[in-house]
Design a protein around this nucleic acid. Structure first.
Lengths: 110, 110
DNA sequence: TCCATTCATCGACTTTATTCGATGGGAAGG
DNA sequence: CCTTCCCATCGAATAAAGTCGATGAATGGA
């Protein structure tokens, strides 16, 4: 994970439609959702949502797999993990104690 | 932390100048950096960087404090923590096991 | 008081993102 | 083979972001 990777992920998640779609996919791990279901959930036109989906796939946040005549989309949890580690690294480099609250809350969350 | 808060943070971090500035501030916690030092590091004009800084402050990622005639900027680590928890919550809701790798790596990082 | 420093805001311009309808490719079913 | 369904891509229009120089407010020092 370098700056460009992180930047692509931040950009991908900086739009309401894409953030909601990604969260929806997270909640549907690991089976995923068909593109059509995501389009319906977004309320946008098929072509508009398709371009949003392309942004997320390009950023590595979502993985697409053909299944018959529909495409199944899955959230890439690993990309999310890497993003958090990328930021945590800068944070912990100088002041490890700053990450303790995060660690504690994540432990109780998961 | 709701969707709008998260969206503002993702947008703030989706620009190279802002991402680098925020990482620089993280590495300078807790003393912070003057706006001028951030401008110099960015290589952009003072007015352009000022607008980038305003985006980060508005998103709650950076806190500004006057000190004499310069403004000291500090990264808000809490905002970052909240952002990660916001995403982890969707992830863990259905499948707690997906967060285990993150937790493990964070523990060894910090 | 007068000047230099620091930085936010304004106005104008350029670049990029978002959105949609229309078109077309590929797969399943009749 | 023909039709239907699913979805990516294209082209054009509108909206939003990014960039800069210029201006001005506020502060501290001469």
């Amino acid at each position: 994970m370098d700056s460009d990777d992180a930047l692509a992920i931040f950009s991908a998640l900086s739009h309401p439609t894409r953030l909601e779609a990604f969260r929806l996919l997270l909640r549907h791990e690991p089976e995923g959702l068909a593109t059509g279901a995501l389009v319906d959930a977004s309320g946008l036109s098929q072509s508009t949502f398709s371009s949003h989906l392309a942004v997320m796939v390009k950023a590595g946040l979502v993985r697409s797999a053909k299944q018959g005549r529909q495409n199944i989309q899955r959230a890439d949890v690993r990309a999310l993990t890497d993003l958090m580690l990328y930021l945590a690294n800068d944070c912990c480099q100088g002041h490890p104690e700053l990450c303790q609250p995060l660690l504690a809350e994540l432990a109780s969350c998961c």
